[in-house]
Simulated assay, not measured.
Amino acid sequence: MLAGLLALLGIGNDPVHADRLLLVAACDFAVAFVALLPQWARTSPNAPAWLGLPSFLVLGMSTWSFGGSASGTGPFLVLIYAWAGLHFPRWILLSYALPATLAYLVPLVVTQQAPLVLGSAFILMPIAVAVALLIEAQARHLREDRERLARIEQWRSAMMSTLAHDVRTPLATVRMVLEELKTDAPPPVSRMLDAALRQTSRITRLAEGLLDVQRIDSEGQLQLDRREHSAQALVKEALTHVRSSDADVTLEIHDEQTLYVDKQRFEQILINLLTNAARYGAPPIVVTVTRKNGQDRLEVRDHGPGIPTELRERLFGQFAVGSAEGTGLGLWIVRQLAEAHGGRAFAEAREPGVAMVVTFPSLGSKGDHRDP
Rank of each mutant, 00 (worst) to 15 (best):
A100G: 07
R198H: 11
Y81A: 06
A172Y: 10
T288G: 03
A195M: 13
A164T: 07
D212H: 08
G220Y: 04
G330D: 04
I123H: 05
R90E: 12
H369N: 11
T240P: 01
L53M: 09
A282K: 10
A349T: 11
A347Y: 04
L259V: 11
T43H: 10
L274G: 06
E256F: 02
A207I: 02
D262Y: 07
D14L: 09
M159V: 14
A97H: 00
A139K: 00
S71L: 11
A195E: 15
A128M: 00
P89L: 03
M125V: 13
T240W: 09
E228I: 09
R143W: 01
H341M: 05
E136S: 10
G328E: 03
T359R: 02
G364C: 03
Q264E: 14
V177T: 14
F66A: 12
A49L: 08
I127P: 00
T258A: 06
V213A: 09
L21N: 06
A207K: 04
R140S: 11
L142K: 07
N46K: 03
R344T: 14
L224Y: 07
G294Y: 05
V16A: 15
A195C: 04
T327S: 15
H241C: 02
L239K: 00
G67T: 04
G306N: 04
V167R: 01
E144D: 14
V117M: 11
P75S: 02
T162G: 08
L171F: 06
L98C: 07
I203L: 15
V131I: 14
T240I: 11
G326V: 08
P115G: 02
I271G: 04
G74S: 13
S323D: 12
V334N: 01
L149V: 05
A164E: 02
G342F: 08
L102N: 03
R243H: 14
G304A: 07
V109F: 09
R279V: 14
L298V: 07
I80C: 11
R146I: 00
V289N: 01
A30L: 15
N46H: 10
V334A: 01
W50E: 02
L53T: 06
Y280H: 15
T101F: 08
A47Q: 05
G367I: 06
E228F: 02
L79N: 03
G10T: 10
T327P: 00
L6A: 10
L259T: 05
F29V: 00
E208Q: 13
L211D: 15
V34S: 03
I80D: 01
A278N: 08
V110W: 08
V242D: 10
L239C: 04
V213E: 15
P107H: 07
P352M: 09
S95R: 05
G12H: 04
L329T: 13
L2Y: 05
E313V: 10
V16L: 13
W50T: 12
P45R: 09
S62L: 14
Q336I: 05
Q336L: 01
L273N: 02
K263T: 08
R297W: 02
T183K: 12
L363M: 12
P284F: 03
V287R: 07
L329W: 05
P308L: 11
R291D: 11
Q39K: 09
V213C: 06
N276D: 12
R291W: 00
D371I: 12
R227A: 12
G72T: 10
V249C: 07
L210P: 03
G60M: 01
E144R: 12
F316Q: 08
F360E: 08
